[in-house]
Design a protein around this nucleic acid. Sequence first.
DNA 1: AGACTAACGCGAGCAACTTCGCGTTAGTTC
DNA 2: GAACTAACGCGAAGTTGCTCGCGTTAGTCT
Lengths: 214, 214
Amino acid sequence: MTTAHRASGEARPGGRTARTRQAVLAAVFEELGHGGPAALSMERVAQRSGIHLATLYRRWRCAEGLVCDLLNGLSADVPLPDTGTLPGDLRALARSIGAFYADERIRSLIEAVVSAAARDPQAATVLRDFFSERLTLAGQMVVRAVERGELPPDTDPEAVMAALGAPFYYRILIARGPVDAALAESTATAVWVAARAGAYRRTEPHNGAPRDGR
Amino acid sequence: MTTAHRASGEARPGGRTARTRQAVLAAVFEELGHGGPAALSMERVAQRSGIHLATLYRRWRCAEGLVCDLLNGLSADVPLPDTGTLPGDLRALARSIGAFYADERIRSLIEAVVSAAARDPQAATVLRDFFSERLTLAGQMVVRAVERGELPPDTDPEAVMAALGAPFYYRILIARGPVDAALAESTATAVWVAARAGAYRRTEPHNGAPRDGR
DNA sequence: AGACTAACGCGAGCAACTTCGCGTTAGTTC
DNA sequence: GAACTAACGCGAAGTTGCTCGCGTTAGTCT
């Protein structure tokens, strides 16, 4: 991987390099709030940040690199709850995600990164790795639930967390509407009920049919 | 809306216009299979289709217009089942969707359209309207289920269908993996169980907490 | 404090993408 | 079948986006 698309960790963390990076990423974030991903051009970021255009191309190679770098700075902004029960955890996490994506700039960033991934293989890797890591972390919530006996022992933690996230990204990328509280509540309820029923077990129920169970 | 991004319906449907459109859209589809959305350029489509570059720009204005036009041609490729029970319908539809997205060119097309929507407001409108329409149609399946008494009467049909689709788009756009049969089965089961439990009711359960119900 | 190195500013230059004007071809109409 | 019109082919011109070389500045090391 070249200098573009890398995580953080500059050679000289405390100096001018970090300062310009800060200025540029802040400018990208602001630009995302003014017209969404469509308005994001290297030229405008250069003007807003006060950093020269050539410098942007040198360090980030293209606009895709910019949004990828910004994404990686967001890692810890959605806290992972531990309420003691899985339905409680799911609801808390769903609400956090909902609150997170209430900010249009964050939605635009997701849009921009997904769009970047469609054009640039490096951006695709960054995107996949970012969410894969988050999924594994959040999966601990499910692992605890299995240990407490709330879920079938062969439940796939990452499948559960993917199911929790999916409706939000559908709303953002496909339905293209705002993320509201109702979506968070609905999703939390749905995932909890489905997980308890064994929908996310690694080995599907042997009969192969959706279990009725009424 | 200009000539670009429009649905079908040419002024001279049976002539050269339709023939070139066919050639161009076929070329776009083939290109999507050779390197994904990143490889899609006006130049390459022109070469593959044998249609002159200037003609592409005249009729579709840009690459975004191309993929939008292609998307609209896919409307009827996923059949809507009517098996007599909602779990049966959900499973059949999930399998159809899974089979549909097993084709990498279709996945690339979705990626390309979502990416286009991030940059071009007209493409965003096409994308939203396309899925909105499909969602309403598929929602009839849920309406029938409500009439049969399988679901709470205030269940939101479109919310159910969005929940059925969401995991596939998460897989394609975020996790960036192949769509397999396990995903279809898991999703069908999850949505059925969740819908039956009232997760997709228009008015959330009054206590506001995920219903435990054990 | 002075030498050293990495990053930045600057403008010119290159390349890719997009558009335009004009002549030609195909399809429609009477 | 002959006039008419819309779409297409073609090449050139125009525009935008990106890169390069060089001089300068900021931060680091001894």
